[in-house]
Write a protein that binds this DNA or RNA. Structure first.
Lengths: 350, 350
DNA sequence: AGACGCAATTAAACCGGTTTGAAAAAGTTC
DNA sequence: GAACTTTTTCAAACCGGTTTAATTGCGTCT
């Protein structure tokens, strides 16, 4: 393995000059630079990245920590985010370190990452309402960016979609269409975006005089299968009058609702309306569903690239308050939403 | 940030002794060790991992490179593999680096990783039949493990399932049931496992006297949507007599076939039989399909953990030839396979 | 020719750990 | 208590780069 000193000796130069030549410093003579570049090519010299890091104090990596138990890595939403993130990081010549830790000493692992110099920054995903990972990193003054936000007025860099506006608009649309029994299939309890969506949904419903019993709001993994189970139960009548509309946190859940509705003999768009949030997963296109799905849309992959960009800026010292972005989701009305069936216009009793 | 020297000065010891005390070397006095550990706790000392790496020559990381274009990261099969891998690596105190590179200089990035010392080993996934990544790493004598294998007699560490046996068994089962028009929905052309599965399928079909026209064998992303499109086309009759059975490389594709069959008014298990390979994706359980799906099963997540284990061994110097594992997939017969409909027993003409 | 300015190069310190070889301290043996 | 082990500690070199401060070489001005 060729080192910088080997190369320097070979050329009859000092390591300092060689280092400068390779890194494009201006004070190196033009003929020398060419000579160095040629020799480094010929001897297949590759700078040892560890040594470089130690000398410069930059690792060129950002970290992400996963709980070994709860498997975020299997969630397609999350993975698409990851895809956007890692390609975005590549533009800044940053690599991503995936680290897994058991739930109980998750925070200790964040601390170790933050203070051992192995990464220049961290990505925090799927924050909960009071997320101790965020407070820990904030205290240490360590660069990090968050996908989502824990409140309205926070002091860290984040990228988020306007969950409140999106779900308020979706709820309004359903009520305008005459739906008075609307069920919500939400994500896992505790996650910030889940709470935000539910608050918007319940606020608009209450404003319009609707009562939503808790048993028609589910909190679970956003998978086809879980949604199928919940929707089947809700449509069965065992919990009370069946909803005439479903609001889903994900198009995957919409698939489950469609399967449950087919089994129950219901026609989507006529007997039952569905709106879902569309994260624009590459292999799941709600515009091709039958019927095409009404959605609130915002590509989650874009969140990944945006956060990669922010991470780069944050590492170069940009103030986190300058790195806060919220985008709105588009409400796209298609054929899965229609007027509520006349037979089912009564709301749930208070 | 406390360094080792700070700590040593604070204790009135030499850096050497402190380093030894922290790393559990035997030649340190017991009372000294305790003193050191206490002080390091109190001063919140965390060893700089970059410096450690430089000194020891081990990075504690393994790398994985993705093409920025073809998006493996979005493939749920692949992601589940990744989940198994990263938790398995954690057991060996290894972290995973995710690196993205454009297709055209993919190999250069592999070389850089292999010779810059930034990782101790590499993971190669989704190999093609003649995969230059493998030859490149092999030439450099750099530790790596492969998920899958490019041939029967290879000189590197791999974990693979017996694709040939699995697809031969599945094909035999269908033919035994009287099916003479069997379509194959395969993965992307060129991938090793895709070729292996197709060879097994065609060999058994030929042995039993069946002709399989190329237009009833598709090569594409293994997604629900692509499978739906191909199955719809094949069932339409536009390509010739419709198949009475589908063999799928993934349960996702089976979902697409089921959707296409429903649209065509076909009953699964009676009018149309389906077998798929089940990678045991956590949110997609073919035993809960309606009807439950006949599968060849092998958890892809297990492949991830097995390869993590192998990577650890390979890094500690175990001979790659000792690290070759092939497991067989179980054929699990459920209700999605039934006797071929009497009306459709004629095979495709030669 | 001497003084000066500028560009190109270098020696040496540094990043923060680990490890070797030697020295000091402590413990045994006679 | 001297001689000899054995245990514990230390100074210095090392990993392979970067960077500061000093030095050399060369053309220019007077």
């Amino acid at each position: 393995m060729t080192t910088l000193r080997d190369l320097a000796k070979h050329l009859g130069l000092s390591p300092a000059t060689v280092s400068r030549a390779l890194n494009g410093f201006p004070e190196v003579g033009e003929k020398t630079r060419i000579r160095v570049l040629e020799a480094s090519e010929r001897l297949r010299y590759k700078a040892n990245s560890t040594a470089k890091r130690l000398a410069t104090g930059k690792s060129g990596m950002v970290g992400m920590i996963f709980r070994s138990s709860r498997n975020l890595l299997v969630d397609p939403h999350f993975v698409d985010f990851l895809a956007g993130l890692s390609t975005g990081l590549a533009d800044h010549e940053l690599d991503l370190i995936i680290h897994t830790a058991p739930q109980r000493d998750l925070l200790a692992h964040y601390e170790r990452f933050a203070s051992s110099g192995s990464v220049d920054g961290m990505i925090v995903s799927a924050p909960e309402l009071n997320d101790r990972r965020i407070t820990t990193l904030n205290e240490r003054d360590f660069p990090f960016v968050v996908h989502g936000r824990t409140g309205d007025d926070v002091g860290y860099a984040y990228f988020d979609i306007d969950n409140d506006a999106a779900f308020a608009a979706a709820t309004s649309l359903l009520i305008d269409l005459g739906h008075n029994r609307i069920a919500l299939l939400n994500g896992e309890a505790g996650l910030a975006f889940v709470v935000q969506r539910e608050i918007a949904f319940r606020r608009v419903a209450a404003m319009r005089g609707l009562h939503i019993p808790d048993r028609f709001v589910s909190h679970d993994l956003m998978s086809e299968e879980h949604a199928f189970v919940h929707a089947t139960e809700m449509l069965s009548g065992r919990l009370g009058p069946a909803p005439t509309a479903f609001l889903c946190s994900s198009t995957l859940q919409a698939l489950g609702v469609i399967r449950a509705a087919s089994a129950a003999g219901l026609v989507i768009g006529t007997d039952l309306s569905i709106i879902a949030h569309d994260d624009v997963l590459p292999h799941l296109r709600p515009e091709n569903f039958n019927p095409p799905l009404t959605v609130t849309r915002s590509p989650i992959r874009m969140a990944g690239t945006a956060l990669a960009e922010m991470m780069g800026a944050r590492i170069s010292g940009v103030d986190p308050l300058q790195l806060q972005r919220m985008v709105s989701a588009d409400l796209i009305v298609r054929a899965s939403t229609g007027a509520a069936p006349l037979t089912g216009r009564a709301g749930w009793p208070h």
